[in-house]
Design a protein around this nucleic acid. Structure first.
Lengths: 343, 343
DNA sequence: CTGTTAGCGCGTTCAG
DNA sequence: CTGAACGCGCTAACAG
């Protein structure tokens, strides 16, 4: 650990505000931590003095006195062992920025710092949980992860893909609804006989849910069935499945839905380089709303799970939990996805 | 501000470690803040006890006693007014993840927290600088920004594109060297008559530097001159410049260098949709090493500025500055870029 | 090189 | 509803 150095901050303290406002320092403290317990007159007097002096509560002192850490940790799972997980795909990291900004916009209104961590093993959660006051868990989508999370003794909210796990504080997307949106979108684009390309839908729960939603919606509104193609091995290579897909297109398939944008773009890319079809004209809907539309030569619609919103809500749930730990009620929220038409 | 709640941490304190190791608590403190001032025997004794007890220094207490904030802030500039700046391009946010991880890997070895902020106006730096102990400035590349930074009264390091500004703590890439790498790469790919596509090279210094480096390297090794095409208006649309580019290709141009990957991919995308050339076969080199190669149907080499490394070094420079504020010497480091061949 | 000591700014009793 | 007072865990003198 490096040696450190003293830094004098603006150093406007609670006592100075108290003096200026003609109240005790305890009252100033109350104004910030439990405003309703202070009379309106004194409260406004304190706030006014604070504004004048440029007072900013000291988070370190607050955390210390509270004998907590003052830290909320956003945990990202490095699911390295899983086939094509997003964080092995740097191109899709744009996602992470949204998440951070969503969480931070909420945390910034409190005395907490936001800390970012990456774990490769669920056991690391135990270590992390006593280095912070609460955990925000990014992208829980596996039963083992869910179990590990339930065992946590620190307040937490699991976010993003967790809709299907109960007895878990969570704020998640609705993958079935997303699949339905894909079906509706293809219909809107005039498709009659779609191909649905997916992968690992047996082992990756969100993929299964999307497919279910899609098929249910499509089948309940069309006579012609959708063709499901699953690339299980080397999914993103797609080589083995290309002939099958071409054959479907020849046989009259006239649109594509795909479990995510990445696979869709990969497919398009393969089709382009093999010069077999004019994929640009094929109605298509992906998933994730990747902001790549102006640098790829394809038009596609996509499902936006609104991750920023999800993480904002998750952070709010976490703060609620933190301020009222008595309530043992586990809460779950779901943020519905929306469709983003191709342009 | 939300009400908060007490959280008991593992609560292994410095005093407990001191007792276990048979030393005073001040010695424990020294082991963490100035190890060389403690005898090796006591040091290992302390470290061993700490390990046994699972002691983790309390950052809040440290910051409080230091009368600092315990926070290092990484500042991202939202250059919204500038034509096509990267953070208006979510697709390129993968970059940000690298930066954060680079900085964090260094900060985590200290008593500081890493805080992330986005500013839209240089004036906000004044507010930020007294809410932290030090600033790491992301992507300074404009003289006005450089001026604002020089006026800071808080330790800082400016990173990324700042090579050309003096009297500034900085750790930056070398854009001229990057341009040279592009020229070398095209040569390696057998190109004889390249087109160099850029934009805003008059107003955006890094663009100017890349072009300079490219031309100097190319001209000094080839008889045939490079053709420079600049898209000034609506740069990423490129519509106006397409005919010119096509003409050049007809006239024998046999390779493309581009000021960044985004513009290159945009260009390829336009070429694909207009079905005029088989761009896939055209040797090309971009800049930024965007990890998109498997989802676009093009092959291209690219210059990698190694941002993670840049930000790691920047963070180290910052800590050095923090631990030895006496030294008024301004330091500047440059991290050379590398070429990433297309696959 | 090492120990002793005095607060850093704030949250939270406990009396009034 | 309000104020006085204590101490959270640690760093930085200072004295030996």
């Amino acid at each position: 650990m490096k040696p450190l150095v003293k830094k004098n901050t603006a150093a406007v303290t609670r006592d100075m505000v108290a003096h200026a406002a003609g109240v005790s320092s305890a009252t100033v403290s109350r104004v910030y931590n439990n405003p309703s317990s202070v009379s309106p007159q004194k409260r406004t007097a304190v706030l006014e003095s604070a504004r004048l002096l440029g007072y900013v509560p000291n988070k370190a002192a607050s955390a210390l006195r509270r004998t907590g850490t003052g830290v909320i940790t956003l945990v990202e799972f490095d699911k390295g062992s899983r086939p094509y997980y997003w964080n092995a795909m740097p191109a899709f990291n744009w996602f992470y920025g949204d998440v951070i900004k969503g969480v931070k916009s909420v945390i910034d209104t409190t005395m907490y710092h936001l800390n970012l961590e990456t774990v490769t093993d669920l056991k690391q959660l135990d270590t992390l949980q006593d280095q912070c006051d609460a955990l925000l868990l990014f992208d829980i989508d596996d039963p083992r992860e869910a179990d590990a999370v339930r065992r946590l003794s620190t307040p937490y909210v699991a976010a993003h893909h967790t809709g299907s796990y109960d007895r878990l504080w969570s704020c998640s997307t609705d993958n079935r609804a997303g699949g339905e949106l894909q079906a509706v979108e293809l219909d809107r684009l005039g498709v009659h006989r779609p191909i649905y390309v997916t992968s690992y839908h047996r082992s990756v729960q969100p993929h299964a849910e999307r497919l279910e939603g899609f098929l249910q919606q499509w089948d309940s509104t069309h006579d012609e069935q959708a063709i499901v193609i699953e690339a299980e091995q080397r999914a993103y290579d797609l080589s083995e499945k290309l002939p099958e897909i071409y054959q479907c297109l020849k046989d009259g398939a006239d649109g594509i839905a795909c479990v995510n944008d990445r696979l869709l773009l990969r497919l398009f890319s393969r089709m382009t380089t093999s010069h077999i079809v004019r994929e640009c004209e094929l109605p298509a809907v992906g998933y994730d709303a990747s902001p790549l539309s102006d640098i790829v030569p394809y038009r596609y619609s996509s499902v936006d799970i609104r991750q920023k919103l999800i993480y904002q809500r998750a952070a709010i749930m976490l703060l609620d939990q933190l301020s009222d730990p008595s309530s043992g009620r586990i809460l779950q929220e779901v943020i519905p996805p929306v469709i983003v038409p191709g342009t």
